[in-house]
């Protein structure tokens, strides 16, 4: 049940996109987000969508995975669509008396849906093709200059790495504790709100106790290996920019430029 959560799930692979430098991938994702928000015309956004589909093709990750990652945001999509359809004025297509559906409303909401889908699908590709460790490593490297203004970049990145590492462990632990309390007749599925919150206590208390125990164990283990923060720390895996990283950067920047130009030529749907 809890195992079905797939936020930021990494699929190991060996595609071109998997092998890109994580720092570059992070930058490309930023560029891509800009690309998604620039178009004010369906044609421009369709071009962006095609770009994502092409990237998925290269990565070897199936589009059905994308469908699963889109499921949680479905309510948001439906909600914004409904708002847009009914509340944008323009050429009336259907008149229901108290509300009316307009051509502009349909167009804007279609654009909105496509934008959200592109945003989620594109940014998910980053976590699908980059292991959490590589990702936090990249964040640490990219934000390293901020150390000068007193931001503890290394410590933040380490905290993030540890947090990510422990998500599956804690999920497994929760499953175990839930099973153990159910074996003693704990009922977590019925009753009112108060009952349900109360039913969480037998789960949460042991979970916290075990999380603290694990944290202490981990701290001891890290100290045993002489960890003492980021000062003067070297890395086993050096990141090095390769020609393919440059190619990916050029392609994406060209794509961004293309989208901006296309947007200049095409009329905006926002009037």
């Amino acid at each position: 049940m809890l195992k079905d959560i797939t936020i930021g799930q990494y699929f190991a692979g060996d595609s071109l996109i998997h092998r890109l430098d994580p720092r570059i991938k992070l930058i490309l994702t930023m560029l891509y987000i800009a690309m998604v928000f620039i178009p004010t015309n369906p044609a421009g956004l369709i071009a962006v969508a095609l770009f994502v589909v092409a990237c998925y093709g290269v990565s070897g990750i199936s589009l059905s995975t994308v469908r699963r990652s889109l499921k949680p945001i479905l309510p948001i999509v439906v909600f914004t669509t409904i708002l847009n359809i009914f509340f944008i004025e323009g050429r009336v297509l259907v008149n229901l008396g108290f509300v009316q559906i307009t051509y502009e409303g349909l167009l804007v909401s279609a654009l909105m849906v496509l934008r959200i889908v592109c945003l989620i699908a594109g940014t998910s590709l980053l976590t699908y093709t980059t292991s959490p460790i590589a990702l936090t490593d990249a964040i640490e490297r990219l934000f390293a200059p901020m150390r000068r203004i007193g931001v503890p970049v290394h410590e933040l990145a380490m905290m993030m790495t540890i947090a990510l590492r422990f998500i599956p462990t804690l999920i497994e632990e929760t499953d175990k504790i839930m099973a153990a309390q159910k074996a003693r007749g704990a009922d977590m599925e019925s009753g009112g709100l108060v009952d349900r919150v109360r039913a969480l206590i037998p789960i949460l208390v042991p979970l916290f106790v075990s999380a603290f125990r694990r944290a202490l164990d981990l701290a001891t283990a890290m100290e045993c290996r002489c960890y003492r923060g980021g000062e003067g720390r070297t890395r086993m895996r050096q990141m090095q920019l390769m020609p393919r990283d440059m190619v990916a950067l050029v392609v994406t920047v060209a794509g961004l430029a293309g989208v901006i130009m296309l947007n200049g030529w095409l009329p905006s749907v926002y009037g």
């Binding site: 175990k176 504790i177 099973a179 153990a180 074996a183 037998p202 042991p206 075990s210």
Partner: peptide, 10 residues
């Protein structure tokens, strides 16, 4: 009684 049942005390 699960393995390490003392982890369920609360």
């Amino acid at each position: 009684v699960f393995q390490y049942p003392e982890h369920q005390l609360f």
